[in-house]
Design a protein around this nucleic acid. Structure first.
Lengths: 238, 238
DNA sequence: CGAAAGATTGAGATATTTCAACTGCGGTGG
DNA sequence: CCACCGCAGTTGAAATATCTCAATCTTTCG
């Protein structure tokens, strides 16, 4: 019936905090402070490490033959980046910081060694990979079935959902993405993203700031969910 | 330049065979013979095991709120199914056999135990998850950027690619999927799939059998690749 | 301050969906 | 054995959603 499983507020935030704590205590790591545009790894680069943001936002992008970018993933605090490199030993996408933040770099080998004595670590690793796969499936569902406006609404709901899980405010958000990046992620043009946002604004589902147009007010997430359920034929049953 | 990395024929087939062999020798498993439509697990079912096909084809489907299906994954011999259940302890999609086949069921717990003494197993597990993530990204790219005809051509190329990796013939294939299932996977209607196949046939890229319309001749995969490169703006750089 | 980048909006072009009709195959039951 | 029905697939024509192209405006940054 309901589309996003409602969890105790703060529960996930604590889980993420605990996980980060465990990593800090048991795995050797390097901390990097990054600024918008900084690159964690690029396509073809030798895979040695996984990355876990402690703050900031990050994107995964594939490069297309004609030189444009396709955004295939977005990451928040406590997410893991770099899984796609494990199989072949080389990364399959670029990972780029979307704003200022801190990211931890964990040697995959060291992580595996540490997990021999600390099985929690392996559990956390597997859970992170599993979650990424589930999220990818949900994105596919959105790409494959939702009309443009609903896709944007769904994107905003997921974004606020991720913020909420981390105990951050969701009534006023600032997207660290251009319209073009959102469009790439959602499989539509930047113009369509802009129009969708305008229509959501017109329908009083959100309010787009007149001046700083990446600032978006979402007084109640329920309005977004309602819009999605009314206009999108699809929503995953859970 | 070239889109699919050309590997020594048989190389991957041997890798897959070796991996299956290792599983057979070191992990307790149950073997199931399945028929088209048989279900490995359903949404919400408690996660205990991963599944590895030894033969046959399988699909992952999410159910949408309005009761339709969304195909989010397709699996061949040596692939792994069920990763999405690890994080939450419950499966997030249904896994269904598309034809007759044999699948091995491996207890996740036993697998982890066995991998303590046999680190290869952990490597194989991680590689399989990593590959799934990479493949999901490629599908997103296709969904987000390719026009319908090219999406279908790309689908056929990937399908034949998977067959080739397993040492199977690729010049004559039989899809175990309906047009509707292909359409669901590619984010388009069954009519559009049908039209795309007709146009690919008309362009002499493939030949759709008149009688058994799931039988498709692909005399040379290069024709598919050429069509994709000519008509699809996008192809991942690797 | 000026130029470049990001964003919005309109109008026309276009790809895909929708709706509908029709075909062929396969199974079932009289 | 044949009639019938349902499922899968194809194809056409109209409807529609999204894209493309272009103009305009704002903000950011050197």
């Amino acid at each position: 019936m309901n589309s996003t499983p409602t969890r105790q507020p703060g529960t996930t935030a604590r889980e993420i905090g605990d996980m980060l704590e465990r990593l800090r205590n048991h795995v050797p790591m390097q901390r990097w402070v990054v600024r918008a545009g900084d690159v964690l790894y690029t396509i073809g680069a030798r895979f040695t490490s996984l990355f876990v943001p402690n703050s900031g936002y990050f994107k995964d992008v594939i490069l297309t033959a004609d030189g444009r970018e396709q955004v295939v993933g977005l990451h928040f605090k406590g997410d893991w980046l770099g899984f796609d490199g494990i199989a072949e030993g080389r990364h399959g996408c670029n990972a780029v910081a979307l704003d200022t933040g801190e990211v931890w770099s964990l040697s995959y080998e060291h992580l595996l060694n540490a997990s021999a004595r600390q099985p929690d670590l392996l559990t956390a690793l597997h859970a992170a990979m599993s979650r990424q796969i589930s999220r990818d499936h949900e994105l596919m569902l959105a790409l494959a079935t939702l009309p443009a406006d609903v896709r944007v609404a769904d994107f905003l709901r997921n974004w606020t959902g991720s913020l909420a899980e981390r105990g951050l405010r969701t009534d006023k958000i600032t997207l660290p993405l251009t319209r073009a990046e959102v469009g790439s992620y959602l499989g539509m043009t930047l113009e369509s993203v802009s129009r969708a946002l305008s229509r959501l604004d017109g329908a009083d589902v959100i309010r787009v700031d007149n001046r700083f147009r990446r600032d978006i007010e979402i007084p109640e997430v329920a309005a977004l969910t309602g819009f999605i359920e009314r206009n999108g034929l699809a929503a995953a049953v859970r």
